[in-house]
Design a binder for these strands. Structure first.
Lengths: 346, 346
DNA sequence: TTGTATGCGTTATCAA
DNA sequence: TTGATAACGCATACAA
């Protein structure tokens, strides 16, 4: 078991100085062709590669990006990572992943671990607990220490960083408009509590669409699910709440759900009540996950383009990292959504 | 924008030496209580944290684990990562992710990037292309340079490393036995080409189960899908092949699929042929993804416990990293599967 | 053309 | 009780 070879060892073997080896390997014209070839041959033979850690220390750059997300077992987030990884790798960056599990403490700890030199910048989506507590000191501290952040999807406005979001309002509006055009009269929304920004915005889009079509919103049609805690019986609770929704609104004929799971569950409940989809009830979800594609009937959804969000976030971050000289200006990039029509709508 | 503070700066500010600061912060009894307090107070005020990179260089340990997987947008793999991250974090390790996208070249490049000092060891699942080419030099080189590897799921036997696998044969056997016990007479298997080890093993389990029950295997019931290339029309091709399967076997009444997608698609095709599930055709899949849980009817599957696989892999790797003195012995841990019965079987 | 010295941030050893 | 020095692996300004 031979350890990785270093400049020092090569220098000793060839009886030259370390700097000669270093220069020879970087093809410096300072070094004679003779020694250059000798050194390079030797290095190749022993498969020399410069040590990343040493380079990081020297350059004060790690060429790695830290990602903090609430969970990874989630189609949207893994898509985003995939997008980040794609452009990061293309530009010679690595990607290090930390999971907050929706917990404030884990988010803070993870960020602190990575911020101590391990990475050059963050791409992150905020944990629900953090949004609830509204404690954002860790973001501000990281930024004030000169480490840029790019937030995506679950963001907070008054933090000085680039942001990549989906046009939640517009996407929701398009979806609900579609339902209205398709003839739905009683359209429910299944959304999250308001502290989750995306839930709040999508609800706003829902309301705007109704208003545009002169439909008066009905409180009983708005279901705000509390998914703070993802517990064992979470699914049952969800199903139960949706059942109440259907019971309270006998003439319900359209459902807009702010995520895939809510949408799937709504379809399930509708079937339970003997409703046919899409003839009796039409359903539209948000997110382009696997569930939607392979559900029966397949689900019409507002596609978020997670991959593209990741790519854009990585581009923004890397640009910041490599153009520190530019004056500080932060942008919020909006990734357009698409309505993907499938079989849960007419 | 203040940079992160270093020992040197603290030393200068307090007019002491760097080593005094270092010792004071680590509560060394060499240092007088007076200076200790002074230094610690100052450090706290400026939120001093030792630089990870410098520590890594000094200790020749990065305390980070490299993960290389074929893709991340995949329930199984993200579960595994989640498991790895869980135990890694608990033991003070970080996790850095590289995606091979099933490509040999990307696998090699990614490993080389990380192996140059960025990480202490690998946890990986082999890309399909690598399995096809049977070129494993990069694994052997990494290992011979003293960097341990733990492989999971898609492994190769004759590499000197720990492995974590699922009892594919047994899991498949259990599933097929279940179908037989439930009265199926004509049981098909939808599997991958043999170069994918898990496909081969699950096929073996299928055959063994048949043999156990004195059923003669029929070639026309064995469909080996070639999923080397995940192209745009991949789904159509898959559906088409499965349709052929049903056409060639009119009395088909049981399907065992080696993954979730195959299983879902089989159900879809069965419905297309007017078959009721589970009355006419019973289906069992492999993998405990979201699709299975939320499909209609929900799918009976062999659960792989991806999270547990990740946890075990991380434990094995970290043990190797922290007990280098132990004699080299490699183990292959088998994680038991469970048959989760849902509505696609009687 | 080659080598020496310095620094990146830290810790450990040894000297004062 | 404190501080100077070396080392981790590399790159580079400067000296020879």
């Amino acid at each position: 078991m031979k350890r990785k070879i270093t400049l020092k060892q090569i220098a000793r073997e060839l009886d030259v100085s370390i700097s000669t080896v270093s220069k020879a390997l970087r093809n410096s014209s300072e070094i004679s062709e003779d020694t250059r070839e000798k050194v390079q041959a030797f290095a190749k033979l022993y498969n020399y590669r410069p040590n990343n850690i040493a380079l990081s220390l020297k350059n004060r750059k790690t060429k790695t990006i830290g990602i903090i997300i609430p969970e990874i077992v989630h189609h949207f987030f893994s898509k985003v990572i995939s997008g980040i990884e794609l452009v990061a790798n293309k530009k010679g960056y690595n990607v290090i992943v930390g999971l907050s599990n929706e917990s404030f403490d884990k988010e803070v700890i993870n960020m602190e671990m990575l911020a101590n030199g391990s990475i050059d910048g963050f791409i992150l989506s905020i944990a629900k607990e953090t949004l609830l507590q509204q404690d954002y000191h860790h973001f501000n501290e990281t930024i004030s220490q000169g480490m840029p952040i790019v937030m995506f999807d679950r963001i907070v406005n008054d933090i000085k960083c680039d942001k990549v979001i989906v046009d939640d309002v517009k996407g929701a509006k398009k979806a609900v408009a579609k339902l209205i055009e398709n003839g739905c009269k009683q359209i429910a929304i299944i959304t999250t509590k308001d502290y989750v920004s995306v839930g709040r915005l999508r609800t706003q889009g829902y309301l705007e669409a109704l208003e545009d079509h002169k439909i008066h919103p009905k409180a009983s049609l708005i279901l705000k699910v509390d998914d703070k805690l993802v517990s064992e019986d979470y699914l049952d609770v969800l199903e139960n709440e949706i059942e109440q929704l259907f019971k309270q609104n006998k003439k319900l004929d359209g459902v807009f759900a702010v995520n895939e799971l809510y949408a799937i569950t709504a379809m399930k409940v509708a079937r339970k009540f003997g409703k046919h989809i899409p003839n009796d009830v039409q359903v539209i979800g948000f997110t382009d996950g696997v569930l939607s594609k392979h559900a029966t009937p397949s689900l019409t959804t507002v596609s978020q383009h997670g991959q593209k969000i990741g790519e854009k976030a990585a581009e923004l971050l890397i640009h910041k990292l490599e153009h520190e000289e530019e004056e500080e200006r932060f942008q919020t990039v909006i990734i357009e959504t698409d309505l993907i029509e499938r079989d849960s709508t007419k």
